[in-house]
Every structure is written in structure tokens, then in C-alpha cells.
């Protein structure tokens, strides 16, 4: 009778929708599943005592010299660093009685965070997709395999553009003060 005390769950979240991800992680904690390692779409959980925990994500890539300072700042403010994946930093803290504590407390820093994500997506887009677009019309290898490759490239590119647009809209929403988080 060995009860499993770790499990891995696969879930996909959009970058502008990390609030949903945070709430999901809190629900898992309430069921006693505490995030042990975020690995992109793979989330490893460990079984523990059910707890009311607030999760928050920051998008930040502190340089080596700054890393300690960064983590100390969060640690001092009562946040545990759970892990990171691709510059997404996962923090958690015990839920208090008041409203959920925030790691970003003004619209400027919320916008700055989305701009960092948007910046990376745009750079990759230019580096990877612009060459791909310019190759349209040139002679292409034929066959089912290449059709599938091009089709999945196309779908990925549409998703990419969608993500860029949504992030841009999110930034605009915050600038116009229409949303708190």
C-alpha cells in the first residue's frame, strides 16, 4: 500500500493568463498537492498537508550577481521561491485574512513585466518566423511529411501572433486602468 506522494500534471497556460495558473496552484495546495518543480507545462507536485497558499508568478531574469538580492527581497517579504522555468519565477506564501498579497503593487511594474515577455516573444518571432515567412513562394520540398511540417509551422505561427496580440492588449488594459491584475 504505497500511496503516491508525488505526481506530475501537464497543463498549458497563456503568459497573460498567469492569474489562472496561480489560482490553479492554490487549489492544488488546498487539496494537499504542493508545487515542487515547475517545468513548463509539466508541474511536479508533492503530497503534504492541505494549506491555504497564495502563488504568484514573476517574469524576471536576474543576473547572477543580482540573483541573491532578488530572492532575498522576496524572502524578506515572506515569499518562498518554489522554482523557475524560462524566466518565470514561482513564489508562494501562506494566505492571510486580508486580500491576496501581491508581488506587483502598481500598474507600471505590471506593464513592465508583460513588456519583458512581449519583448522576448517579439525577438523570437523576428528571428524564427520572419525567415519562415519570406521562404513562402519559394520552391518547397513536397510530400506528406513536408505538408505536415509546414502546417504545424503555420499553426504555431498563428498562436505566436495571437500571444503577441493578447499581451499587447493586456498592457493596454493595464495602462487604461481597466484591470487590477
Amino acid at each position: 500500500m504505497s500511496e503516491k506522494n508525488t505526481k506530475t500534471v501537464i497543463r498549458i497556460f497563456w503568459a497573460w493568463n498567469h492569474g489562472k495558473e496561480e489560482r490553479w496552484l492554490s487549489r492544488m495546495a488546498r487539496d494537499g498537492w504542493h508545487l515542487a518543480a515547475p517545468r513548463g507545462i509539466y508541474y511536479r507536485f508533492e503530497k503534504g498537508t492541505p494549506a491555504d497558499v497564495v502563488y504568484r508568478l514573476d517574469y524576471q531574469n536576474p543576473k547572477k550577481a543580482d540573483r541573491k538580492e532578488y530572492l532575498n527581497l522576496f524572502g524578506d517579504a515572506g515569499w518562498d521561491h518554489v522554482g523557475e522555468f524560462a524566466n518565470w519565477q514561482y513564489f508562494r506564501t501562506a494566505a492571510g485574512d486580508g486580500p491576496s498579497p501581491e508581488i506587483h503593487t502598481d500598474p507600471e511594474s505590471r506593464m513592465a513585466m508583460y513588456r519583458r515577455v512581449l519583448g522576448l516573444l517579439t525577438v523570437i518571432f523576428i528571428a524564427v518566423w520572419v525567415p519562415a515567412i519570406t521562404s513562402i513562394g519559394r520552391p518547397q520540398p513536397s510530400g506528406t511529411f513536408w505538408v505536415i511540417v509546414r502546417l504545424s509551422q503555420g499553426i504555431l505561427m498563428i498562436l505566436w501572433i495571437y500571444a503577441i496580440i493578447r499581451l499587447g492588449l493586456r498592457i493596454r488594459e493595464i495602462r487604461q486602468g481597466r484591470t487590477g491584475r
Partner: peptide, 25 residues
Amino acid sequence: GYGIMQNVTALSENKVRIGPGTLYG
């Protein structure tokens, strides 16, 4: 950094808080 966050909370009589993400940025 933490001193700044504490001081802001104290100065503003708990009305304003600066989160670590905001301060680090």
C-alpha cells in the same frame, strides 16, 4: 530593499504596500 518595503508600509499607515516584484523592477 526590505527596509524600503517596511518603511513604505509604516509611512503610509498600512495604506500603501510595495511588493518585492515592483521594488526589484
